[in-house]
Every structure is written in C-alpha cells, then in structure tokens.
Design a binder for these strands. Structure first.
Lengths: 337, 337
DNA sequence: CTGTTAGCGCTTTCAT
DNA sequence: ATGAAAGCGCTAACAG
C-alpha cells in the first residue's frame, strides 16, 4: 500500500541507511544522493511511519495528560499552555478526561503502564501514596500540575496563601462574617482535589489571625459546580445571621454564589461581597473580584519540567510555585455600617 | 529494564505465542497454562508495550483531532463528546490546537501523514479543495465536525437555518432593524470558518422573506472574540438609526454585545434585544436567548462516523445534520412601540 | 560517504 | 493447545 523506506531505497538505488539518514537530516549524505532520495520520496509520496519510528527509537514523542473535567475553564486554560509548549517541542499531546472516580483510578493505573507516552502530566489530581509508588515503578517521568504529592515534581500555587489573601482582603474591607463555599472534602468516593481544602485552610488562618473565630456553619462544601454552589450559598445566606461576604474556592462557584444572591434579592456588592478564585476568562466579564493564578503558564512550566525529566530522568525533584495576585473588581466593597 | 513478552515466556516456560494469546484473551490456551502465565506476568510486573503492539498490529488505537482555539467553550464541549466516545471505544485522543493560519496549514498537511493515528477528526475547519485531495491521498479516515467539504463525511448543523431561526424570532417580536455581528469573512489569511458565514446567509434570507431589506451597515465582522464583538457592536449601536435587536453568530460574541449595551447604557432587553448562538454553558447563567446546538453530541456522532470508517474505509460518504433549537431567555423581548 | 545487518516487542501464521 | 519463526518499518552500529 503506502511506500516504505525500503521502496524508496530500491527505487533510488541506495541503501536503507542512506534513506534513513536523509529523512533524519544527517549531514553524512552527499548533496547529490540526498537530492536523488528526496526526489524519490516525493515521487512515491513516501511518509515515514511514526509508529515504526517510535518503536525503533524507543520513544513516542508523545506526552499524556490526565485531567479531571477538562471542560472546566481553568483546566482548559492549563491544557492550552501544555499544548502550546508541547507543540513547540515537537511533542504530541494525548488527553485523558476523567469524570468519575473509577476512571480516575483506571487512568492513573493504566496510562503510565501502556507506554504510549514518554511522559505524563497529571492535572489537579493528587495521587495517593500507593499510587505514587506504582507510578514510580513504571519509571515514566511524571509532573503534577495544580496538585501535590510527596516525592513527585510539580507546579502549583500556594493555595493556603491564596485562601488567606482572599480572606484578608474581605477583612480589610471591614467584613467580620465571612463565609466559604468550596469543594467536597476528599473522601473515599471522590477525587482528592486538594486546592479547595488548602484555600479553606488559608481562610481559617486569616480569620484566626484577625481574631475572628471561624464558624462551622459558615463553611459549606459540595460538588464543584455553579449549581451546587448556588444551592449551598442560598442556604448559607438564609442563616439567621448571614455572612456579609462570601469566598468561593473557584470562580465557577463564585458564579453560583452570585446567582444565589440574585435569588434572594441581595445586591452585590452592596449587601454581599463575593470573591472567587482563578480569574478565568469570564471573571472579567462579570466584574468578579478574584485571586488570579497563571493557568496557561502552569501548563507551560509543567511541560518544561517534564521535558527536562524525560531528557534526564535523574533530574532532582523540582517543585515550582507560581505567583498569585488579588484582582479587585466590582463584587466586593467596604461593608456598609 | 522493563520486562518483555520474552521474559515472561522464558520464566513461565512457555512459547512467545502463548503469552501473546493470554494477553489477548485468546480462547486457545488451557486454563492451567493461562494461570501460570498470568502469575508470571504479575510477578514480573510485565506490561505489554503499546508501541510494539501498535507497530505489529499496524494500528495505533489513537484518533487525532485538529481544533482551532480549543479553548473556546463550544470547541471544548465538542472535544468532551469526542473523548467520551473514544474512551468507551478503547481509543486514545491526541489533540492539536490551532491558533494561527500557519499552524492550521501545517497540521492539516502533516498530521494525516504522520500515521500517528488511525483516524482524524477536524473541528470547525473547512479544508480547501486541494487540502481535501491531499487528505484523501493519505487514505486516512477523516470526519469533519462543524465544517463542510465536498466529498468528506461530517456532522454539522444547518447553519443557514439556524441564522434564519434566530432572525425570524426577532422579526416575530416586532423588530425590523436587526443587526448582525459575526466572524471575519474567510480570506487568504484566515481560517475558513464557515458557520458564521452561513448564519449570516440565514439572517439575510429571513430578512428578505419578511420584506425587510438587509442593510450593509447593520452587518459587522471581526475576529471571533468577546472584545472584538463589543467594539463592533458599540459602533453599530451608535449609528444614527441603530438596530433594536442584534443577532450574534456565537454566544461569546453575544457577550460582547451585552457589554457594548452596558457601555452605552442601553437596557437589555428593554432597549435592545440580543440573541446568540450555541447555548454554551454560560448562556444560561446570563439568561441569554440563543440557538442551541448539540455540541457534546456532535463530538460523539463524529467519533461514531469515524470509527465506522476506520473499521470499513469503503463506507459510503455519510453526512449528518444535528437539530437546533431556539432557547428563549431574557435578552430578547417584543419591541416597545 | 554509503550499504548491510541486527534488533526494537509484539502478533500471527504454520507446524506439531 | 502450544512452540517456532517470520515479519511489521525504522534506526543505529558496523564495515567498508
């Protein structure tokens, strides 16, 4: 069917090796020979088989990514950074999307083993200790993005500091009754997202530091999603003594909070201040105050670390922290007294 | 290093073929032998190499996707459908993101040739005739999603009908001065998106059918994006005799229109009706009236067509049209008189 | 500079 | 039911 390197060699009247050298731009071919081979390649419409190439080389020039809900704006933006960095390095990107616990476990177990890729990027998923061990056994270079695990390299932000930053800002605006809306605390059945948990920690620390005792009833957790956050927030805002400000662990959840405020006819920011996290695209549109993190860059940096590790697996464990920044917009204001 | 099939065979004291049969669940192995081999596999932590397997089989169990701006909500949703359908079929997904004209051309040319994948899905990009020819020459099964090309299978919606549907709705609400905001008309330098152009056609047809002459100054085109649409809309709305309703070729652009209205202190829908296209996630949040198309499903159906073609390349050219639906929300209303 | 050859790890006949 | 052997298309080491 399709021409092989052997066909090219035969027609051009040269050896296999020569054709291979031409394909790979080796300098050890005379100009004349090279041209002849090139002509035959064009004539035969020959395309080197990537699979055969990978096989022979022992590398796939492919990087695999496991991401939960890759449809979430923050994840998409990280993926975009990954793709861009990978493409400029000549690597292809294969994506595994994970929306159930079972698939998370399967992917984490099987993808590294399949040897389809030269490296693996895991987004927003923290492998458990036993999974880390299994991962290391495969010897496949791995980098975590927006997640942390002992003895695995990664790029993240300081989520605790982020949570504190958001909360301190609300405190500085005079708020004392500050609520928190975040993801479900990881349990057996869930994904082990850690960022929401850390942001909660930062929230609590900031409160304590300001002499405000954190109240349990001000902290609500649910599945990540606009609708879930809306329900949670509505509940929270109907408390006898409701919060005057709400910190949502993500912009998506903050949108749910905004909806809840609308449901209850609470004016934002006059009666309720709202702050989110991530600074996804739509945050600007909504005028949402939020904590910005560099999503695109996290993908880029993750790829850099990974490629370094692929080139030299002995590279010492690197962990990179990306900066965060408070973006004050219109959903927060000094508390009315 | 890692154990190979040969190691397993040796340790288990069986032939290569037997191990292969066990791996592939062939029934031609005795229960006893199978168990012995399985034990050795576990003991050696053997994982069959996917690359070697692909190579030997002559198939990669991978599908490639070329998508422009895969960060756009509508594209992401299609990809999600693709990934889901692929995963359940045992295929992996490799993604190429295209954000420049040059990369579009390169991908269209190189990806099919590289033989990295058993099939190719092209999203929202219409190959030119010469590109179609080159594509067909590679004999790689291809399916278009949200794009059309002669002699290539695909799944799309009827964009002309969609444009007409949106426009007729505005007309039915009493609007006569209806503007259109869409993508740049394809030129040498751009991507050849066709959907916006077709929606414009539908818009014009509906207008004519209602006896309203389309006015050139009511039709604006720019790069796809919220900001660009905002600028375009602002300009349009500052006309001496501005439109009372605006049809945006996508929800993202409709958001820009909404911003423009805000800029000019025009109340929506009281002073201006706005309708979008796609019904992306955020449309519901914004209460945006729009034309819904089945994005996720378009990915699923594209995969189905593609897998069918991979299984049997002689499958006759299939083209599938997905339904559209008007979703009336809060950004449109009967014109005040 | 160039041709030849030995694998890479697996699937698949083909015998047995 | 199972072992042996022939590739799949390419790269790289080796010999000229």
């Amino acid at each position: 069917m399709a021409a092989t390197i052997r066909d090219v060699a035969r027609v051009a009247g040269v050896g296999l090796g020569t054709v291979s050298r031409v394909i790979n731009n080796s300098p050890l071919v005379s100009q004349a020979t090279r041209q002849r081979v090139l002509d035959v390649i064009a004539e035969l419409r020959y395309n080197p088989s990537q699979i055969a190439r990978s096989f022979s080389l022992g590398k796939t020039l492919t990087v695999a990514t496991i991401a939960p809900f890759f449809t979430r704006p923050s994840v998409v933006e990280r993926l975009r950074g990954i793709e861009a960095a990978l493409a400029s390095g000549g690597y292809a990107l294969v994506v595994f999307n994970v929306e159930t616990r079972a698939r998370r476990d399967n992917c984490l177990r099987d993808v590294p083993r399949s040897q389809r890729a030269d490296g693996l990027l895991i987004i927003s998923l923290a492998p458990q200790p036993d999974e880390v061990l299994a991962l290391q056994e495969t010897r496949l270079p791995v980098v975590l993005i927006d997640a942390y695990a002992d003895s695995l390299p990664g790029v993240t932000i300081d989520d605790v500091a982020g949570g504190a930053l958001a909360t301190e800002y609300l405190i500085a605006l005079g708020h004392r009754r500050i609520g928190f809306i975040g993801d479900l605390i990881a349990d057996e059945m869930s994904f082990n997202f850690t960022s929401s948990r850390h942001r909660l920690e930062g929230y609590q620390q900031a409160l304590v530091a300001a002499g405000i005792p954190p109240r349990d009833e001000y902290q609500r957790h649910g599945l990540h999603g606009r609708y879930e956050a809306r329900v949670l927030a509505r509940d929270l805002l109907e408390l006898p003594e409701p919060p005057t400000a709400l910190f949502a662990a993500s912009d998506t959840q903050a949108m749910g909070v905004l909806e809840a405020a609308r449901d209850l006819n609470l004016a934002v920011p006059d009666q309720l201040s709202v702050i989110g996290f991530d600074d996804i695209d739509v945050a600007e549109y909504l005028g949402l105050t939020t904590i910005r993190q560099l999503l695109f860059e996290s993908g880029e940096r993750g790829v850099e670390l990974l490629l370094k590790r692929i080139a030299n697996p002995a590279t010492k464990l690197e962990r990179e922290y990306l900066p965060i920044e408070l973006i004050a917009r219109g959903t927060t204001r000094r508390i009315a007294r």
